[in-house]
Design a protein around this nucleic acid. Structure first.
Lengths: 159, 159
DNA sequence: ATGAGTCTGTACGACTTCTTACAATACAAT
DNA sequence: ATTGTATTGTAAGAAGTCGTACAGACTCAT
């Protein structure tokens, strides 16, 4: 039924160039993570945020938002959610009344471990085809693309 | 103000691996296109769809949706929009009463040419750093990733 | 010819993320 | 001390996409 997918999304989108393939691949990666993570009741953004807080100690909402590449407001929504589900807690910072210090609850820590399992499994399936060298090259090229992009986007900010 | 962006999004997201970089890059590409295309009053999805219909003759909504990697319903919304703005028209197919045949109006054609200009400009800025060989390798790796992904996603469909 | 199954476009609601605006708090300069 | 500026989290609304469900139109085997 959808077996044609793998080819469509490669040659068709915007203007059949690698930019399109890259965006389609990104979409699929997100989808794959969302599907796998739904087993433990999370989506990629939630998992991402929780894992990041778990690994990098207590931090403010703005900090985690910046690190995972998301707006403060959006992160706030996700944090509301995770803390309602008792995976994350908000602690007062005695040194700064404006901020919350985020920290994983013990339940959140168990969840973070499950996330790591899912992540490792999926990542190894994803890399089946790619040698370590290739992955390095890929990352390198992506970083160069990113630096071009940040110039492009900076340019239009000041306008 | 946002000059730090370029580095965050490279080393930080989900689990600082190339998967994250890829997704961040994709996000930036979309953003860059959206910014540039806003000059002519479109976003990437609209431009994509219009350009595709312009280039690949009259086609049904389902067809264009599949080609640009989007759900039928979502494409329908975009088409509503483009046809309200007289860039696209819906024609009856005498052979099949169910479908619309999409076709660019003359105004839509002029718009498609503007899109091509924006696209060419942006693409060349984007590739500044990458040799033709490298772009080939990049595309190749992305395609391999896609094929892994389609296996992964197929697997979870039948479940 | 006719009924079962398939396909098309659309309506509707959900979800995610963005943008903008704001009140509370912090900080720096006078 | 006071005042102006920055920063934090949140609220409210917009936009984009998805998934589901549906009615109408097609197809094909009987």
């Amino acid at each position: 039924m959808t077996e044609v997918r793998s080819s469509h999304e490669l040659d068709a989108p915007p203007w059949q160039r690698f930019e399109s393939t890259l965006m389609a691949t990104s979409k699929s990666i997100r989808r794959a993570y969302d599907v796998r993570l739904s087993d433990i009741g999370l989506n990629l953004s939630e998992a991402c945020l929780l894992e990041y807080v778990f690994e990098h100690g207590p931090m403010t909402q703005t900090q985690v938002a910046e690190r995972i590449g998301m707006q403060r407001a959006s992160a706030g929504t996700i944090i509301d959610n995770l803390s309602r589900r008792k995976l994350l807690k908000r602690l007062h910072d005695p040194a700064d009344q404006r901020v919350w210090l985020l920290s994983a609850t013990s339940e959140g820590q168990r969840m973070a471990e499950k996330i790591a399992v899912v992540d490792n499994a999926l990542r190894s399936e994803l890399r089946r085809n790619l040698s370590s060298d290739e992955r390095g090259q890929l990352a390198d090229m992506l970083i160069r693309l990113q630096s071009n992009l940040s110039q492009i986007l900076e340019g239009s900010d000041e306008a």
